[in-house]
Measured scan of single mutants.
Amino acid sequence: TEKEKEVKRLAKERGLSPDQVRELAQRAGFSPDQAKQIADEFA
């Protein structure tokens, strides 16, 4: 999704850790499970 792409782009730009990616995703409105899946891509 657009929102997911945006979260991943920000995460890459900022060099976020997987935990930070998960927090960012949840703040963007993703469920905890979705946020974990997104964060796992950065693990």
Results as ranks from 00 to 15, higher is better:
F42G: 02
I38R: 01
S17H: 08
R9A: 06
E2R: 08
G15V: 04
E4P: 03
Q20D: 08
E23Q: 13
D19C: 12
I38L: 09
K5N: 13
F30M: 04
L24A: 04
A43Q: 10
A35D: 00
A35M: 02
L16Q: 02
E23S: 09
L10E: 08
R14P: 02
K36L: 10
R22K: 10
G15T: 04
Q37E: 09
A43F: 15
I38Q: 02
F30Q: 00
L10Q: 10
A11N: 01
A39P: 02
A25S: 03
P32H: 09
A28R: 12
Q34V: 11
D33W: 09
Q20H: 05
K12F: 11
E2D: 13
A39I: 03
Q37P: 00
V7E: 01
P18N: 06
A28H: 14
S31M: 05
R9D: 05
L24G: 00
K12S: 08
L24V: 04
A25Y: 02
S17T: 14
V7Y: 04
E41F: 05
V7L: 15
E23H: 09
K3S: 08
L16V: 02
A11T: 01
T1H: 14
Q20V: 03
R9E: 05
Q37M: 11
A35T: 03
R9I: 05
G15A: 07
E2P: 08
E2N: 11
K5A: 14
S17F: 06
E2W: 15
R14W: 15
A39W: 03
Q26K: 10
R22Y: 15
K8P: 01
Q34H: 11
Q26F: 09
R9F: 04
F30C: 02
P18C: 10
P32Q: 12
R22T: 07
L24I: 04
A28S: 11
P18M: 11
R22E: 11
R14K: 13
K5M: 12
R14E: 06
K36E: 10
S31W: 03
E4Q: 11
S31F: 03
Q20I: 03
L10H: 06
E6W: 15
F30D: 00
D33Q: 14
E4T: 12
E2S: 11
R27M: 11
S17M: 07
D19S: 12
R27A: 13
K8M: 10
R9K: 08
Q26Y: 07
K8G: 03
V7Q: 01
E6R: 11
L16N: 02
D19K: 11
Q26T: 11
R22A: 11
L24C: 05
E13V: 11
Q26R: 14
G15D: 07
R14T: 06
Q37L: 11
R14A: 11
E2G: 09
T1M: 13
E6N: 08
G29P: 00
R22Q: 11
P18I: 12
A35N: 01
V21T: 06
K36H: 09
G29K: 01
L10I: 15
A28W: 15
L10F: 06
K5S: 11
D19L: 09
L10G: 03
A11I: 03
V21P: 00
Q26W: 05
E13M: 12
A28C: 14
R9M: 05
E13R: 09
L10Y: 09
E41P: 03
K12P: 01
Q20L: 05
K5E: 13
K8C: 12
E2Y: 11
K12D: 04
D33N: 10
G15N: 12
E6F: 14
Q26A: 11
D19N: 10
A28L: 15
V21R: 01
K12A: 10
K36M: 12
E4S: 14
D33E: 15
S31D: 08
Q37T: 11
S17N: 14
Q20P: 00
P32E: 12
G15E: 06
K36V: 08
V21Y: 02
D40N: 10
Q34I: 10
V21A: 05
A25K: 01
E4H: 08
K8E: 03
K3F: 08
V7T: 03
Q37C: 08
R22I: 15
D40T: 10
L24W: 05
I38F: 04
Q26L: 15
D33T: 14
F42Q: 03
A39G: 04
D40P: 01
K5Q: 14
G29H: 01
Q34N: 05
D19Q: 12
S17G: 07
K36D: 11
K8I: 14
K5G: 07
P18S: 09
L16G: 02
Q34E: 13
E41H: 05
E4K: 15
T1K: 15
V7W: 05
S31V: 03
G15H: 10
I38Y: 03
D40G: 05
E2I: 10
K3L: 15
G29A: 01
R27P: 00
K3E: 07
E2H: 09
G15F: 05
G15S: 07
D33P: 06
S17D: 10
G15Y: 04
E13S: 08
D33A: 15
A28D: 02
V7M: 06
K3W: 12
S17V: 05
I38V: 04
E4I: 15
P32W: 12
Q37V: 12
E13T: 08
L24D: 00
R9Y: 03
E6M: 14
T1I: 13
K3H: 06
E23R: 12
F30E: 00
T1Q: 13
D40W: 15
T1P: 13
E2V: 10
V7N: 03
E2L: 13
K12C: 13
A28P: 00
D33M: 13
S31H: 05
E23P: 00
D19W: 11
E6Q: 11
P32L: 12
K5W: 12
R9Q: 07
D33Y: 07
R27F: 07
R27D: 06
K3C: 11
R14M: 15
D19F: 08
L10M: 09
F30G: 00
R22L: 13
K12M: 08
K8W: 08
P18H: 14
L24Q: 02
A11G: 15
E6D: 07
V7C: 08
A11R: 01
S17Q: 08
K12T: 09
G29C: 01
S31N: 08
S31R: 06
E4A: 15
T1N: 13
R14Q: 15
P18Y: 15
Q26H: 07
R22N: 07
V21G: 00
G15P: 00
Q37N: 09
A28M: 15
Q34W: 05
K36Y: 10
F42E: 03
D40R: 13
R22F: 15
K3N: 07
P32Y: 14
G29S: 02
G15C: 09
A39Q: 03
P18V: 12
E13Y: 08
R27E: 10
Q20W: 04
K5Y: 10
E2M: 13
A39C: 04
K3M: 13
A39R: 03
Q37K: 15
F42Y: 15
D40L: 14
Q34Y: 09
D40C: 13
F30T: 00
F30N: 00
E4F: 12
K8T: 05
A43T: 09
D33G: 10
L10D: 04
E13N: 06
E41I: 06
Q20N: 04
L16P: 00
E41Q: 10
A43R: 12
G29Y: 01
K36Q: 14
E13P: 02
A11P: 00
K3D: 07
A25W: 02
K36W: 14
G15I: 03
R27K: 12
A28Y: 15
E4D: 05
D33H: 11
E41W: 09
A35I: 04
Q26S: 08
D40S: 10
P32R: 08
E6V: 09
K12W: 13
A43E: 13
K8N: 04
S17L: 09
K12N: 07
E6L: 15
Q20E: 14
K12V: 07
I38T: 02
I38A: 02
E6A: 13
R27V: 07
P32A: 13
F42S: 04
G29I: 00
P32S: 11
E6K: 07
A39T: 03
A28T: 06
L10P: 00
L16Y: 12
T1R: 14
D33F: 07
G15M: 08
Q26V: 15
L10V: 13
E6H: 10
K8S: 03
A43M: 12
K36F: 09
R22D: 04
E41R: 08
D40V: 09
K8L: 14
R9P: 00
E41L: 07
A28G: 03
E6T: 08
K5H: 09
R9W: 04
K12G: 06
E41K: 06
D40E: 14
P18Q: 10
A25V: 02
E13K: 11
Q20K: 06
E13L: 15
E23V: 12
K8A: 04
L16F: 06
A25H: 00
Q26I: 15
F30A: 02
K5F: 10
F42K: 02
G29E: 00
D19H: 10
E23G: 06
K8F: 07
D19R: 11
R14L: 15
S31K: 05
A35H: 01
